[in-house]
Amino acid sequence: MTLKQYQKFRMILTIIIAMIFSQAIINQNFFLSISIIILALLLHLFIRSRVEEILHDERDWAIGGKAALSAITAYSWMGLAVMLILKSQAILNPVYDIIANTIAFSVCILMLLYAFIYRIHHKGKIFSIYTIFTLIVLVAFVAMAIYGIINAVK
């Protein structure tokens, strides 16, 4: 299979999956939504293994790294702006406060996750004092976020 055929297949697969997944979620059929995601993942892996050409090279990885960092930065700033707006409007509707907290936590978790993965790549090993420390902070933050959001909803 050529690279172009693979890219075409991936695009078609994504459209089909998005359509089925969204309909399954609307109908609250969670079994179908999870099944379709797993099936798509397996199908994607199978098709990718059939591609004879090079899918990604060092230039793609370099661009991907830059794009990921820019996306994280953009999301963080947007999250901060939206959070501040929602917090200021929380008097009108208390739900805004929960949404603002969820966004704030998601920004923090994203940054911590980035720091954790960055440390792994930087040090070249999973278990170093820095990665373990970042992982502990990350897990603690996720736990705090879940606990805080559940309590707020109650």
Partner: peptide, 10 residues
């Protein structure tokens, strides 16, 4: 590209 193990675009 094939010899160097990269994509033609590179």
């Amino acid at each position: 590209a094939k010899i160097a193990g990269v994509r033609r675009e590179t």
